Simulated assay, not measured.
Amino acid sequence: MIGLFKMMRNKRLFILLIGLILFIAVMGFSLSDRKDLTWPEKFLNDTVGYVQQWFYKPAGYIAGLFEDIRSMRELHEENERLRMTVASYARDKIRYNALEQKNAELQEKLNFTEEQKNRNNYTYMIAQVVSVSPDAYNKTMKINLGSRHGVKENMAVVTEHGLIGLISSVSPFTSNVMPITELDGQSANAKWISATVEGNEEASFGIIESYNIENGQLLMTKIAEEDPLKEGDVVVTSGKGEVFPVGIVIGTVTSEQVGDFGLTRTAFIDPAAQFDKLSEVLVVKVPDAEGDAE
């Protein structure tokens, strides 16, 4: 029995020694400067490469999937930033256009008031239109200036384009404006407009007494037969009445015809001012009369 154990130990030692020798031989052979692989190495290399492809391709697909997901998230975040930038630009563009339009309007008003001040020495108070009456029989508009601001009844109200109307009633902080489109020659309380032709003030004269809502024109009557007024003339206030000051543009003559009994003529006037969508108006203050119209 003891001899058998010794034999087995000697055999195991022998096998270990043979394995060590083969391992050293293989290592030396592998590390040697060779150009070609042996057939076992080729077989092992092909086997490992074949097995690796089954792991490499799915791993590549999974890595690509995560890369695509990350790219999509980055693309979504970039699109959100671009969308916010575009929205901000659109808001800024709208704000810029509004400011540019407002600046142009204010510049136009400034040029107008400077020109009128040099011509007539009037003072103009800028007022905001806060409401328009829906009453078909009393179409007045309310502005945000009142007696505390120096506004009085019968002051003329204009835009930079022409005459709008006059102050009909005044409160401390607001006033009502009666537009010239509400002129009624048949009313006992009518305030007619004494008018003339710009550039020919001494020779032309007439009375604007009503507005025709159907054709959107003012009616100018009591024009003398020899009056030089003609189509295309610019009609302005003459200042000879009891309400409106001199030199405010009313409109342009579009046509004329023989008046009642053939003794006078009648003219139709296109108003110079636009009455729809009014947001700002100018209240005319005549300095010599402390705001009262001449």
Rank of each mutant, 00 (worst) to 15 (best):
G185L: 00
G185R: 03
G185I: 05
Q186Y: 10
Q186F: 05
S187M: 00
S187I: 01
S187A: 14
S187F: 07
S187E: 09
A188P: 07
A188Y: 07
A190K: 10
A190M: 12
K191P: 00
K191T: 04
K191I: 11
V197G: 07
V197R: 06
E198L: 15
G199L: 04
N200G: 00
N200T: 07
E201D: 05
E202H: 11
E202Q: 11
E202V: 05
E202D: 13
S204K: 00
S204P: 03
F205V: 07
G206Q: 12
G206P: 02
I207D: 14
I207Q: 03
I207S: 13
E209R: 12
S210L: 01
S210Y: 05
S210A: 14
N212L: 11
N212C: 01
N212S: 09
I213P: 06
I213E: 14
E214I: 13
E214R: 15
N215E: 13
N215H: 08
G216N: 12
G216R: 03
Q217L: 15
L218A: 14
L218N: 13
M220C: 13
T221P: 01
T221M: 00
K222W: 09
I223P: 01
I223W: 00
I223M: 06
A224T: 11
A224Q: 10
A224V: 04
E225Q: 13
E225T: 13
E225C: 04
E226G: 08
E226Q: 13
E226W: 09
E226K: 12
E226T: 12
L229V: 15
E231L: 04
E231I: 08
G232H: 04
G232A: 10
D233K: 11
D233I: 10
D233M: 05
D233N: 15
V235R: 02
V236K: 02
V236P: 03
G239C: 08
K240V: 02
E242A: 15
E242C: 04
V243I: 14
F244N: 08
F244M: 09
P245W: 02
V246L: 12
V246T: 11
G247N: 07
G247D: 04
G247F: 09
G247H: 06
I248Y: 04
I248Q: 04
V249S: 09
I250H: 05
I250R: 09
I250N: 01
I250E: 08
T252R: 12
T252P: 02
T254W: 09
T254D: 15
S255D: 10
S255W: 05
E256W: 12
